[in-house]
Amino acid sequence: MTTASDSSSSMTKRPNRLFKNWMAKLASVPMILTALVVFVGGTAWTIVYSFTGSRMLPKTKWVGFDQYERLWDTDRWIISIKNLAIYGSCSMILTLFLGFCLAACLDRKIRYESAFRTIFLYPFALSFVVTGLVWQWILNPDFGLQNVVRSWGWESFTFNPLNDPNTVIYGILIAGLWQGTGLIMCIMLAGLRGIDEDIWKAAKVDGIGTVKTYVMVIIPMMRPVFVTALVLIASGIIKLYDLVVAQTGGGPGLASEVPAKYVIEYMFRAQNLGQGFAASTMMLCSVVIILIPWAYLEFGGKKRG
């Protein structure tokens, strides 16, 4: 039963390498299968089939880069990419900024700190679907925020982002920030708490003001925390799908389409698998582009130090 008794009975012969720790290897089979079959195999399969003309079913009819050419000729994809760029850059900057500011506020030894933290973080426990639907309702022009402000007497007040193709992505951004900032705040707060108390004391003895200490001393010290936060935000941005489906369904028209939605629409609704594969391969490429410099900074830097 146990490996220990096995090895003691076969003391004279050197045990076979392959069967050393065989129980550990057996127990790792699900992990190995997941890593190799689903992650490596699945990704490779998708990339390979993105060069085929598959429609309803995957077929090995090679078409070269046709799917990619068609992809970049499709307005819907271009809109998706633009939306993702706007949403991504805004959400990256604002989440980092707000997350850090809130964390810094909570780190000032204030009262009711845990109450505030609980409030800022609870949206993170909710589903994107719930978030999307609530904000859809609040931003509803006939009954929501706009209507309430108008009923207060400001008749010309207009705040209807979800029904305007030019602003719909900012409407989604409001909901996205609401859901995601709490997490970043929590990470930043943990980072701030990890900073040596003596640094603050030294800065105080040097007569450096609070804001200046944050900007000149603390933020540079928190570089690894910022990098972690950045990676988290970035991977969240690329996954953006549920929120859009729930809040706008991609509308009005195609104005709030995003790449993840494009992939699923083409794979499972439009029955154009090849397009879906090509689009998802493009998503993979963007992740690689983001991830490689990060991995280099994170792991390349460690070797030097």
Binding site: D196, D198, I199, K201, A202, K204, V205, D206, G207, I208, M216, V217, P220, M221
Partner: peptide, 20 residues
């Protein structure tokens, strides 16, 4: 008085140098 106005210098156990 504020620490910086007291005419003191201080050295800490963990050095507390500004690492960047």
């Amino acid at each position: 008085a504020e620490p910086s106005e007291r005419g003191i210098g201080m050295v800490f156990q963990s050095y507390a140098l500004y690492p960047q």
